[in-house]
Design a protein around this nucleic acid. Sequence first.
DNA 1: CTGAAAGCGCTTACAG
DNA 2: CTGAAAGCGCTTACAG
Lengths: 341, 341
Amino acid sequence: MKESGTTQRQVKTISDVARLAGVSKSTVSRALSDSPLISRETKERVRAIAEKHRFQLNVPARRLSLKRSNTLAFVMHASCGTFSLDDYFVLELVSGISSALHGRGYDLLLLNVDPSDDSWAEQHLESGKADGFILMTSTRKRLHISTLLGLGAPFVAWGPPGPGPEYCTVAGNDRLGGRLAAQRLIGIGRRRIAFLGGAEAEAEVRLRREGYHEALQEAGFAPDPSLEAYGDFSTASGARAMRALLEARPDLDAVFVCSDVMAVSSLRVLAEAGRRVPEDVAVVGYDGLSIGLHCWPPLTTISQNLPLVGKLLVENLIQRIDTGAVSHAVVPVSLVVRNSG
Amino acid sequence: MKESGTTQRQVKTISDVARLAGVSKSTVSRALSDSPLISRETKERVRAIAEKHRFQLNVPARRLSLKRSNTLAFVMHASCGTFSLDDYFVLELVSGISSALHGRGYDLLLLNVDPSDDSWAEQHLESGKADGFILMTSTRKRLHISTLLGLGAPFVAWGPPGPGPEYCTVAGNDRLGGRLAAQRLIGIGRRRIAFLGGAEAEAEVRLRREGYHEALQEAGFAPDPSLEAYGDFSTASGARAMRALLEARPDLDAVFVCSDVMAVSSLRVLAEAGRRVPEDVAVVGYDGLSIGLHCWPPLTTISQNLPLVGKLLVENLIQRIDTGAVSHAVVPVSLVVRNSG
DNA sequence: CTGAAAGCGCTTACAG
DNA sequence: CTGAAAGCGCTTACAG
């Protein structure tokens, strides 16, 4: 009974727990990971001791042994240096992903990468830093996707699936979104409805435009290229495209803008041009970001349900890691009517 | 020369590199970590081989051996479930931190915690998941700080240092910020200048109020409690406090709001009350978030230079981990004049 | 159901 | 300057 003297000795490894429980390391390890090999009594005893001493498994050791990091990396490229509104979409998504990870036993690593450099993938995969990637990057997306495919890395990308090799995707229902936006503007009596897109090369932009075209045609209007302009999802490009549209078609009475971030800067251009929103020009945005609630006038928009997007990104990636299953998820979108259109 | 057949064999461990270089594992390890023990020639040879085969050190093994994770955890509690504007300050900061980490050899873990539960600290420290913490949480800050202090965990907290035990802090110059805001409003001829604060318990709120009082007194005005109201930094609380102020003092002609997030919702309340901004009521916000640029009217504000804040949080935390040094940094603030005040 | 032993891939005294 | 060996703290065949 010479327990005294060792009173405050820390319980830092499974060996310590084993000693206290009078069993082997193997048994402790199995008890803590709930192995079916261990009897209920032993399990309970070991766990009680572990809890009493607030024992924490050493995670690097576990990862080394398991050859698995239980870590997901979120890949983004915040506009180097200063933050800007342009990143709000991604930031709102991080929040959804982070919540979705809760209780799933995975950690979330934030990876800020240079869009023209794809070495991050190998560096994080081969080193055992991450088991899989969530790809948000819109610039040079093809480069990053093909690098990941080349490595055989598990990943999930935001946006509609491309042609070619298969990988997990989560996207909004872009065609429906475009359609809903145009239908809304037609429904409130607009006739010269412009389309302000992100980069035309992006599949989601083309799909939203298709939906917009369909709605126009169903209402008996012919799509008109002079009513279409493109940016790159940044505030600056949105403002530029809006100015170009006003110049080309001073008679436009509505505009469907492919992202809330660009819509917010379009509102400003319209105000500066002396157009009242929505009286002179109605505006519908896309994404359903919180800023849309607080700009002026509050933005009517197509909401993408980002918490759900985050959940699906996480769950489908984990499924891909565990089973190899490749999935394509499409999340519903919905029209949120506020004041701008 | 029977090299063929093994052509595509992967180089996955330092043993593989050692074999190819004709040296021992020890030497490879030392060469890759740039140990002064190794000759320049050997170093170069080993590194050339490692690079040629795109060798990546196994990070969990390294962490196990070094007993150091080289990982910083950013602790936040996004409003559970749905994201909201309320989180924009934190999100802009994550971006700054992530950039600041670039090239410092540390990874960034995102920790979304329940504000009433402080078990995350022990779980991440003892398990070797993180070496230090960046604390953003405003709710129950004292609880989390005392838990971290109790564990002896390296951490840095945003906000002015509290009394009692010492820990690293990074804060804005809150007193100066409050002063600049009030001076601006006095300077444009306002006389009944309200103060809309975050929680009165927060040191930064009290300091900003002190600065505001000082400026008033210097201009010959007496501070007036009926012109002061408090929220909790959320949009909802900002709106509530603004309504209370308008009710209590319908004659107010300016308001200094302690955060841009609350200022944005105050703008809306003022618009609904039929007050023109800035003609009837001038508004100055705080933080310098990007939303301030895109609300209506664009927000005059006290900018906090969040990229610098992120840099200091990271650097001072790493210094604390490496040397034990406890620092208190104060970042400059500046008035950014836009349209609201 | 339990344990002794090997192995995961590094780092670093220790010996030369 | 270099190497053999022990050790970091887990997990898991393998043997009982």
